[in-house]
Design a binder for these strands. Structure first.
Lengths: 395, 395
DNA sequence: ACCATTAGTTTATATGATAAACTAACTGAA
DNA sequence: TTCAGTTAGTTTATCATATAAACTAATGGT
């Protein structure tokens, strides 16, 4: 049971100070004391520890405001490195970053979905090894490894419970990787959830306490951030909203159900419509929403198909809004590459259909990290675990 | 900004101890120390304060387990009283309870929906006055007043923003009541959210960290409890899931949208089906699901209509499950009076359609507080505000 | 030149948790 | 019946941490 011992107070305050420095650097001790309400002496003591731990450094002398000039503090993004990996349906994408999510090295590899689990995990290990080799000399070195997977994950054990597009079932991914790097934290999590973390720490979600990241690609997944924290639910299924019904008499979904949202507001829908409209020339191996959006500028038919998907996206967003009532909805994943072709109609549809107008309408915006959301989020998950754990929360 | 000063630690520990006593009484100081991990001296000091504040009392000597016999502690449910009011579409229901939600007095009054705001609020004030007059002599007296309303509420100001069934818009209810009782906290909140609180503190939600209470009556509303706390969203709209679309090509809803869940899994649906099937003899003033369920035992047609509604309830529950991934879903409101006629088919539908079987399937159970959920929840909201605030949570 | 102002440190103090020693009260077995 | 062992609860001394206030340091403006 979490009792409040005195060292908890210290932890909380130290976290608070570190977070403030990260958010508002350069900042002086005096300013920290003013904005947090902590005593100057307390701030000085905590800052000294943070400096000793290499997470903060003094970055020179600031401007005087009529008295002694302040010593400015900065978050030390080079205290260590992070490895983030996105496991896609037919590719692996890895990044090595500093603590500020600046990409120091990245690599993308394709594989055929037909390759077995073993082979794919083997490639992943190689990729992570390559990343670790490139890590610069820093006080902490590589602080951990985060992996985003397209499926439902049991986080405690790092097991991939269910990943239909990979045809994985109960794969103990974290255990395998942990054996490879016993000394580093390994985090396995759903790709949309990690992308949400990425946007929260380094992207479009920065300023919101409650937001939902929508990953619209082959299917639809979501990462839900409530009270500044990722919400997972009891078994990590929270946010699997691609299977929200939007039409009980609609099309059968691969999940066995009928009329799921992801049959209407995803690449699946666009592909179906392209072939229905006799535009199957777009349906080759290199199918890309980005290219389609480009072509749509002078091709009304393509534009219309994208807009249809956007409208369906909006229909489903209503349910997201009613469920979570977020400040913002961030649209990411391949579909977001169509930009305003998709997001505009979605926004319109929401405005048209929503119940209580002003109060409840969230911002609907595009992902900032784009195709890097997941990998950067995977790195961010390490940051959050090791360096900046969320505020001490309800039990 | 919430800094960790030392008195925060004390508050946390005191809350922890009080909660433990409430949950597990009778319990000894030694047991509290063991289960919380707090030092015996700390526990004794905190318990002494709680006793001085009348929230705890010693209830005699317990059984020895081979040594000195323990002094058993109990939560003092009679330290004060709570007033909870449910504002229905055409009735008011008020309860006066002790801190254990034991009903000391209750009263129900009907009104015609055509009566104006003023008149209704006037009746409410009379009712609350009557409740306060009945309050027994206790150390704290009436500790506050909670009001549940069928609509969207801005909690900080206690304003009813939007209550379509009452035709209320921006009514500053809390302000009016607060003027009447300036010294007592007045809480105005959505009825489903309060009912969820009621079930959390005194009903079927007690053992769950994450659960959703579904209030199925004329419409569908929900109260969402995540991490043991009511989740409201940015503007109190979280849980307005009655307007989740389940059929884009379906029936027009009063909200302007099409195919909303509450057109299919509510009293509205049952009334529609009754008249479609030529059973409009049930549609008089005293229409009641409970009576219908009773008659359904020997009337297949009625049973079938209830089951249909139950199946639609299940279809919509999938979306609740995918959104929140709760441990349990508690079905309340008038529709729940049909018991297994509705809940059974809902359960089946969920089981049939759900994506990841075992892991994600929540318990689907009936409300325990029945038609009293909201009023008791309103009382509980006072308890939570004044006596047992939620664990100190994320910022 | 020096006073008012701001930045940051040092020192003394208060709060509250804790460990250890203590008193109190009981059980069970010799 | 007695006493060793055990459990409950209190008292006392100590420790960790935040804070207030006094201090030193450094600066700008008159």
């Amino acid at each position: 049971m979490r009792t409040g011992n005195i060292s908890l107070v210290k932890k909380m305050n130290k976290q608070l100070v570190l977070k403030l420095i990260r958010d508002q650097h350069p900042i002086s001790r005096a300013d920290i004391a003013k904005t947090t309400g902590l005593n100057k002496a307390t701030v000085s003591a905590l800052v000294d520890e943070l400096i000793a731990e290499h997470f903060v450094h003094e970055s020179g002398i600031g401007e005087s405001t009529g008295g002694r000039r302040p010593l400015m503090l900065r978050f030390n993004a080079d205290a260590g490195s992070l490895v983030g990996v996105e496991l896609g349906v037919n590719y692996l994408y890895a990044v090595l970053t500093n603590l500020n999510a600046d990409i120091l090295w990245e690599q993308r590899r394709s594989f055929r979905p037909s390759e077995g689990q073993e082979a794919i995990i083997g490639e992943m290990i190689e990729l992570i090894e390559a990343a670790i080799r490139r890590a610069p000399a820093t006080p902490y070195g590589v602080m951990g490894i985060g992996i985003g997977v397209p499926g439902v994950v049991h986080t405690e054990s790092g097991t991939v419970i269910f990943a239909p597009n990979l045809r994985w079932d109960d794969v103990a991914l974290a255990a395998v990787l942990q054996k490879q790097w016993p000394e580093r934290p390994v985090i396995v999590e759903n790709e949309a959830k990690l992308a949400a973390l990425g946007e929260k720490w380094f992207g479009a979600g920065n300023e919101f306490a409650h937001f939902v990241y929508i990953s619209a690609g082959i299917g639809i997944g979501a990462g839900v951030v409530l009270h500044h924290q990722l919400y997972r639910g009891v078994s990590g299924l929270a946010g699997e909203i691609g299977h929200h019904t939007i039409d009980v008499n609609g099309i059968r979904c691969s999940c066995g159900n009928i009329g799921c949202w992801e049959m209407y507001a995803s690449e699946k829908y666009i592909e179906r419509r392209l072939s229905e409209e006799g535009r199957s020339e777009w349906l080759d191996d290199r199918f890309s929403i980005a290219a389609m959006a480009l072509a749509a500028e002078s091709d009304e038919q393509l534009a219309r198909i994208l807009e249809e998907a956007g409208r369906y996206l909006g229909v489903g967003l209503l349910q997201v809004i009613y469920a979570y009532n977020p400040e913002a909805v961030i649209i990411g994943g391949p579909l977001a590459q169509a930009g305003e072709y998709v997001i505009g109609p979605a926004r319109q549809e929401v405005r048209k259909r929503i119940l209580v107008k002003k109060e409840s309408e969230p911002l609907i915006i595009a992902s900032k990290l784009k195709e890097k959301s997941c990998a950067i989020g995977a790195a961010a998950s390490v940051l959050e675990t090791v360096v900046l754990p969320p505020e001490y929360a309800a039990v």
